[in-house]
Amino acid sequence: MITKDYIITSAQGMHARPATQLVKLAKGFKSATSLKKGDKTVKLNSLLNILSLSIKGGETISVIMDGEDEVSAAVVIDDFFTKQLKEL
């Protein structure tokens, strides 16, 4: 299992467009992926659940990846939070 923390670097936070992108990325892996904000954890395959966390710019979240391809999932998701998110 891999857990990584990220600060949300886009002003609007996880709004619909980046959240959609994230769900699409997560669905490409066999590993179970989830997102944690505060004491709430949701699966990354549901856009509804990600949006319901109402993640704002500057907030810290954790991503948890568990499964056979968790290492490559971590690389892709890391790229999403550190690079792509700013442009979405």
């Binding site: 959609t20 769900v23 699966k43 549901s46 856009l47 509804l48 659940n49």
Partner: peptide, 16 residues
């Protein structure tokens, strides 16, 4: 296109 892709994900949403 981005709006449509968001709609696709929501219609397909496993939680819903």
């Amino acid at each position: 296109i981005a709006i449509l892709e968001t709609q696709v994900e929501l219609i397909n949403d496993p939680q819903i």
